[in-house]
Nucleic acid binder design. Structure first.
Lengths: 140, 140
DNA sequence: CCTACAATCTCCAGCGACTGGAGGATCAAG
DNA sequence: CTTGATCCTCCAGTCGCTGGAGATTGTAGG
């Protein structure tokens, strides 16, 4: 078990130092041991854990979900139904966002494409924004 | 010009009352006239403006961009190049997000699909999250 | 006219997920 | 011994809202 300083942990995981401390504060990372001069000492476990957290965040999982996922990794005999359902729920969210974003892109593309590059008073961009009726968008 | 109370404005635009006040605070909505008893009085212009704001927010434009777009609508003779460039920039952002989210969906779908619904120790969801190498994800 | 109750007002704290600065202590290298 | 990097804690700010407290005002019914 190497002794890893927070800066090294940061470099190895790509998570900024203040963010690591923040993760400790909110209980995603456990409070590590300290040196005599009060500096945090991490080990390889912490690198793994932080990479897990970071990866999950990159995938857009919320902190609460990550907390659950981590507690699952600590009970490896537990059925994985819960992990599965978190992932499924998240997948559904992502697919919803994807659909919304696709519609949004189409609308933006149309706005930009139709713009005759003249004056604002004739600008499709402004017009589309001003007239809600032109768009099929939901939101949420 | 009807006299419209903030609650009516809220109902007509789908923007919550505190949000309207917030928009006033940050200068998206102008400060309206008041009644003798200090209540905000809006007009039809304000409905239009708030709908514009809401629509732009729904489309994911940031408040700063909306501020610019609004100031453009108030100079209708100005060339629309700026509105166009804001929309283009936003379109590019949306397309980037869309691509990322697509990759994310694929990864999540794979995670969920590969999960054998057994124990956590064999769970693909957990495994994929733990092993960053398995994923092609960038982030930002 | 009185009573409810709804709507409004201001102020301010909180959300999520960080980010970064101030001001001080400590460490490693030259 | 000095320099500069790193670390510490604390706290305020980011963005775009959201909602509660506590006071006031408007409106409808009895």
């Amino acid at each position: 078990m190497r002794d890893i300083a927070i800066g090294v942990l940061s470099r190895e995981t790509g998570v900024k130092v203040p963010t690591i401390r923040f993760y400790e504060e909110i209980g995603l990372m456990r409070a590590p041991a300290r040196t005599g001069s009060n500096r945090r000492i991490y080990g390889d476990d912490d690198i793994r854990r932080l990479k897990f957290i970071r990866h999950a965040r990159d995938l857009g999982f919320e902190v609460d979900d990550i907390r659950t996922l981590i507690s699952l990794t600590e009970r490896p005999q537990a059925p994985c139904a819960e992990a599965d359902s978190i992932a499924r729920r998240h997948l559904a969210t992502v697919e919803r966002r994807l659909a919304q974003l696709g519609a949004l892109r189409d609308e933006l593309a149309r706005m930009v494409g139709d713009c005759c590059h003249g004056q604002v008073c004739d600008c499709r961009v402004i017009e589309v924004l001003a007239d809600h009726g032109q768009c099929a968008g939901g939101h949420g």
